[in-house]
Amino acid sequence: MSFIVDFFSFIKKYYPYYLEGAKNTILIALFTVILGTLLGTLLALMRLSKKKTLKAIASSYIEFIRGTPVYVQILVIYYGLSTIGISFPEVEFLNPIIGMNFSDFMSCVITLSINSAAYVAEIIRAGIQAVDKGQMEAARSLGMKHGLAMREIIIPQAVKNILPALGNEFVTVIKESSIVSVIGIGDLMKKATNISGKTYMVFLPYLVVAIVYFIITFSLSKLISRFERRMKNSD
């Protein structure tokens, strides 16, 4: 009983920190999914290209990114870009909105997007290859160019096949975004670490952050499942 009282007392006192961390985590994940999907689509098309050079570039990228830890990648991007003189412009009016420095925010988004794109590319490639080859042959027989047929016929059909996997990737990105706390970004994990440092407590701060992550990912999974059912019903 004492633990339950302490638990709710802790939440009442520190919930604003977790709300801010959740907002930052969702923002990072949202931009990561958008950029990761765009880059992943490009990589998937390159892998399916008949040009060996494009296929080799995409394959090398995917294998390298999937073969290195995201922890290493974020350190390389965050510290490496500044070392070679590359920096993101400061956008002061966005700092209060995103709750952090814009340059740091972009470093996180770009790193996670680069990582996510390697996995999204394989998901999209598999989805495109799952579409009946006769669809492309029929489109070409009607005089459609390959690019137009991909954009208007093949990819829309592939989206329905890959939606569950893309939804799982979004959930994965939300969980993996906890790694950004290592460079001081105020996401959920960083907020929990800060609270732990202030209170000298370990169990409660991280228990609460685990619950918050679960609520976010569970809600997202249910939302994706609902959207998926609607798409199936529209067939």
Results as ranks from 00 to 15, higher is better:
F3I: 14
I4D: 12
D6W: 09
D6K: 11
F7M: 05
F7L: 14
S9C: 01
S9A: 15
Y15E: 11
Y18A: 09
G21Y: 08
K23Y: 15
N24F: 04
I26Y: 03
L27D: 05
L27Q: 05
A29L: 02
T32R: 02
G36D: 05
L39M: 15
T41E: 07
L42E: 01
A44G: 12
L48V: 10
K55E: 12
K55H: 11
S59I: 11
I65E: 08
R66L: 13
G67N: 13
P69K: 02
Y71H: 06
V72K: 02
V72P: 11
V72H: 05
Q73V: 08
L75I: 15
Y78P: 07
G80A: 07
G80F: 10
I84H: 03
F88H: 06
E90A: 14
P96Q: 05
M100R: 03
N101L: 08
D104R: 00
C108K: 00
V109R: 07
I114A: 11
S116A: 15
A117L: 09
I124Q: 11
G127I: 10
Q129A: 12
Q129K: 14
V131L: 08
D132T: 11
G134Y: 00
R140Y: 04
R140C: 03
S141T: 13
M144T: 06
L148V: 12
I153H: 01
A158T: 03
L163K: 04
A165K: 10
A165I: 06
A165W: 03
L166M: 15
G167M: 06
E169G: 04
E169W: 04
I174E: 00
E176K: 00
V182S: 12
G186M: 12
D187W: 06
D187S: 09
A192E: 09
I195M: 03
S196W: 09
G197N: 02
V202D: 00
L204I: 15
Y206K: 01
K222T: 04
L223I: 10
I224F: 03
R226G: 10
F227R: 13
R230A: 13
